[in-house]
Design a protein around this nucleic acid. Structure first.
Lengths: 95, 95
DNA sequence: GTAAAGTAGTTTATTTTATAAACCAAAAAA
DNA sequence: TTTTTTGGTTTATAAAATAAACTACTTTAC
């Protein structure tokens, strides 16, 4: 009856991150932080989890002298997100 | 940008319970347990939380000699569910 | 009739997760 | 040159989900 909800995506902050990345192609730490309203610590932890799952890639570099962490969604991430949305529909209907 | 996800509803099992009750009007413990696949212990705890939040009402009675716990969604529960679904859309788009 | 197994749950303990607090390093500003 | 700001990470704490253990009663099998 109900499809399983991928627990890695069924988290407010991680879902927000994925939602941003699925339409933005790439986004940096600060941008994601502002859009989601998350604390830096929490965001750092959750980005790591998404990265370790292979759902996003994280590139650390510099913009001038300022460190800059850029995130991108992977193919695996895109399909995990899509499956999650499908699963959700078994709970909330077509809306 | 993103709407807040009511943490009481943003839980796989509790969301499943609410999803059942929003279309079934009333359902008993055993039925919900089978539909969701939850363990009895987990279901008991989560039903309590929904009940304490005023999202469902729980009526304990007997069917013959066998105890029977019947759940119903409340008005408050219906609107919380609807708001949750609206909030979700800010993350997943129209789908 | 009584021992064993099943039904319908609750309570408590454990694990996992999310979040917050504390911290670090470098750069810019005062 | 001390202070503040930016851009984070690491570690500790709080909250949540889940599982395990238990209770109470009923039915079935001997």
């Amino acid at each position: 009856m109900f499809k399983e909800l991928n627990p890695l995506l069924h988290s407010e902050l991680r879902l927000g991150v994925m939602s941003i990345l699925i339409s933005a192609d790439s986004a940096d730490f600060t941008f994601i932080r502002k859009q989601t309203g998350a604390t830096a610590g929490n965001l750092s932890v959750q980005l790591d989890k998404l990265s370790q799952a292979g759902y996003i890639s994280i590139e650390k570099g510099y913009r001038g002298k300022v460190p800059r962490t850029t995130c991108r969604i992977t193919e695996k991430g895109v399909s995990a997100f899509q499956e999650y949305v499908e699963a959700l529909k078994s709970y909330i209907g077509k809306g």
